[in-house]
């Protein structure tokens, strides 16, 4: 109840401010140019989205559906102009986009390459057969290619850059010497880092009951993981608050003309 009251007071204050600023001519005319219109549209959508703090309401639902529709269309448009036209048509029949859209694409594509790009065209068309109830088996072929490509690419990438690279970075000398002298702080850091990795991994080892040495290591591992999650949590809070501040700054400076 207190939260709702606070949000209602905030909304009313904002509305009052907008009315005062508009009456004194401090806010831009929304129909002055496309940028001014954009600021008003953006402010209205921001307020509609923020209204969710009051609970699910028609303003939020309106903004939510606009967001869904616009983002789906944006991704489709990007996919068409940035993947289908240059990558598929540009290799299959570059003359078509050059003649139809006046695009700047190389025309010297060999016959072999043109024939090769029939494969993604066919797979793409197979994917679209999913719309038909009897086309699911055909669309599975395209899906199989997507899954196979993902599996092949991820296997190599994660094996090299995550698994092996992380193990390689962890295996370091446990005693650090600087200019021939023992460096206690650096040594402590390396020991904590190595022990931390081993203990945190011990927590994920479920093939044996976690008791004795393994259990102790696992308990330390939980602490290490909690510290990691705590830092991620802190950064997430910082990021979200920064976004909120940016939205408030937009409303107060760009829209209402304060600051």
């Amino acid at each position: 109840m207190t939260r709702r009251l606070a949000i209602a007071i905030f909304a009313l204050t904002l509305l009052l401010l907008a009315l005062i600023r508009a009456s004194t001519g401090a806010m831009s005319n929304p129909f002055a140019d496309e940028q001014a219109l954009g600021v008003w549209v953006s402010a209205a959508l921001t307020l509609c989205m923020l209204s969710f703090l009051y609970g699910d309401n028609p303003f939020f639902k309106f903004a939510e559906n606009v967001f869904v529709g616009v983002s789906a269309a944006c991704w489709m448009v990007m996919a068409f102009w940035r993947a289908l036209v240059p990558n598929l048509l540009g290799n299959l029949a570059p003359e078509v986009p050059v003649a139809l859209f006046g695009m700047d694409l190389p025309l010297d594509v060999g016959v072999g390459r043109r024939l090769l790009y029939v494969v993604p065209l066919l797979l793409g068309l197979m994917l679209l057969t999913r719309f038909h109830p009897r086309g699911r088996a055909i669309s599975a072929w395209a899906l199989a290619f997507i899954i196979g490509t993902t599996a092949g690419l991820r296997f190599v990438t994660y094996l090299g850059s995550d698994f092996l690279a992380q193990i390689h970075n962890t295996i370091q000398p446990l005693v650090v010497l600087r200019d021939g002298a023992f460096d206690a702080r650096a040594t402590l850091s390396v020991v904590v880092l190595t022990a931390g990795v081993l203990c945190a991994m011990a927590y994920f080892y479920f093939s044996r009951e976690q008791k004795g040495l393994l259990g102790a290591a696992s308990r330390v591992g939980i602490w290490i993981l909690m510290i990691t999650f705590g830092a991620s949590f802190g950064y997430t809070v910082m990021g979200r608050v920064a976004l909120l501040v940016a939205r408030m700054e937009f409303l107060l400076r760009d829209w209402l003309g304060f600051l």
Partner: peptide
């Protein structure tokens, strides 16, 4: 904290994730 315990935790998670993805693949 960022360069030692958190790096250790992230490393263990990354190794675990990599093993999971490799086995799933």
């Amino acid at each position: 904290i960022m360069s030692v315990p958190i790096t250790a935790g992230n490393r263990a998670i990354m190794i675990g994730v990599a093993l999971g993805i490799i086995s799933t693949s």
